[in-house]
């Protein structure tokens, strides 16, 4: 089934087309959403939102990009919106924690600690990585996830993000440098907590 046939099938609510969409794209959508939100249940919920968005917006798809790119774009936007909403919720719960007199304090950053006594396990590394990626600016985070996790070529990332190829390269370079710094700070923070 070509992109055009699939889109016209979706517009006409053809069961075969919808099934084709789900069978061929659901894994990709769930996995990309997971790389952003780091929770499988949330990723599956996001995949449902993405598929409904595809059904609703299929009539507006002009075929300027490939269907794959368009679906990636919707997934990225939905995932970023989800993270934004979650951040707001977290902010409210932090404010609530302050008012309820709970311990909302953070560990003091120690930039030059001695790390060597600290042993991290993979669970901790996963948390640190997730934390570091989530604090990257949105466009750097998107470029990094699409490049490192989804292994998409720069050209496709540029199309999904609607930026130039040079911008993607720059965003990725900045993302790596920031991630490096953030990870080092997080190692320090974490080893301070553990000691």
């Amino acid at each position: 089934m070509t992109d055009k046939e699939l889109i016209s099938g979706i517009i006409n609510r053809d069961n075969v087309a919808i099934q084709h969409l789900v069978v061929n794209f659901h894994k990709k959508v769930i996995k990309t959403a997971y790389y952003f939100v780091h929770d499988m249940q949330d990723a599956e919920d996001l995949a449902q939102d993405v598929c409904i968005e595809i059904l609703e917006s299929a009539k507006h798809f002009k075929g300027m990009s490939s269907l794959n790119t368009w679906i990636y774009r919707i997934t990225v936007n939905k995932s970023l919106n989800f993270i934004r909403k979650n951040k707001r919720k977290q902010l409210f719960s932090q404010i609530e924690a302050v008012f309820m007199n709970r311990d909302g304090s953070h560990a003091v950053e120690r930039l030059e600690p001695s790390y060597i006594d600290t042993k991290f396990d993979d669970g901790e590394r996963k948390v640190l990585l997730g934390k570091s990626i989530n604090t990257l600016p949105e466009n750097q985070r998107t470029a990094f996830i699409l490049s490192k996790y989804d292994e998409l070529p720069y050209k496709e990332i540029a199309e999904i993000m609607n930026v130039s190829l040079a911008s993607v390269e720059q965003l990725l370079h900045r993302a790596k440098m920031n991630l490096q710094k953030k990870l080092i700070v997080h190692y320090a923070e974490y080893s301070t907590k553990k000691q």
Binding site: I18, Q19, V22, V23, H26, K27, I30, K31, Y34, M40, A43, E44, A47, Q48, C51, I52, L55
Partner: peptide
């Protein structure tokens, strides 16, 4: 390497 839940596809089809 993480794979989605095998029932995710069925759930998605039902939702649609």
């Amino acid at each position: 390497r993480i794979e989605p839940n095998p029932f995710a596809e069925t759930r998605l089809l039902q939702k649609l």
